[in-house]
Amino acid sequence: MSDFLLNWLINIPGFAAPFALAALGLIITERAGVLNLGAEGFMLVGALAGVGAMLNGSAPLLALGGSVVAGMLLGLLFAVMVASLRINHVISGLALVFFAQALVSFIASAERWNNKAIAGLEPVFLGQDVVIFAVPLLTLAVLWLLNKTRFGLSLRAVGENPGAADAAGIDVTAMRFAAIVIGAGLIGLAGGYLTVAVARIWVDTVVGGRGWIAIALVIFARWHPWRAVLGAVLFGCIEALIPRIAATGADVPRYFLQMTPYLATLGVMIWAALRGSDRWAQPAALGQHHIREERD
């Protein structure tokens, strides 16, 4: 039993980290008022870049750097679409996911990266790799960035009231560009972690809807970094628990367990709706464009 608990606990962070990283990236983006439904796409390009770098002989951490860059590059495209061209956020995000799905399949097939085993990221302490230890630090960094810096204040202002921010001299387009690209880098890292550290293989279904779960997590967390990490750990607990219970041969209510994180998400949404607004509620201008000459 103690082995069971130990194996379970050791495996939780690895499952939680991709959700946490993606949720942090989404929070930065959405705090600037950009609704980002493209998480699955950013994760896919990050995941592929990580595998591609590993298969071409790069070290795991360098490969994860490649995932960040790949996420940021796709982020630039998304930023041009929603911040510069002011295309509908929902449509751009969804189109980006489909684009990324086709792009990664195309590249992986052309480069013959499918199904190849890669070495993966080695644990450094307590069975965990460096990225696991970086997640709490990154969470603190995101909190500091959003709450303690002028940049963060401007970013949140753009997300709450772009008109007022503009009047105060903040470049709304530039702020949104920055928020999208930084956020996309983190989401790309989440994807890279999934292939380089967790799955250690590329198939084009590897992200498997985890980007969408991250989007749900952000809503669950009410756009708050710590709560998002907490939610990620909750998902990690379930993902690490289900196969372990099943492997003991016990008859588990698998579908019930799979349901629990979403049940928690729904519960938080209902709780938030009943409680009314708070400081960490949905950014007021989420999904809205700002066009200077137009009145809100």
Binding site: A199, R200, I201, P243, R244, A246, A247
Partner: peptide, 25 residues
């Protein structure tokens, strides 16, 4: 024989988790 169902046809994350959990047993 112990069987673990992943609930997905091609999810290497879940497949690895299932295989590792079985090997632990």
């Amino acid at each position: 024989l112990t069987v673990v169902f992943t609930g997905a046809w091609a999810d290497p994350v879940k497949e690895r988790a299932a295989a590792e959990a079985l090997i632990e047993q």
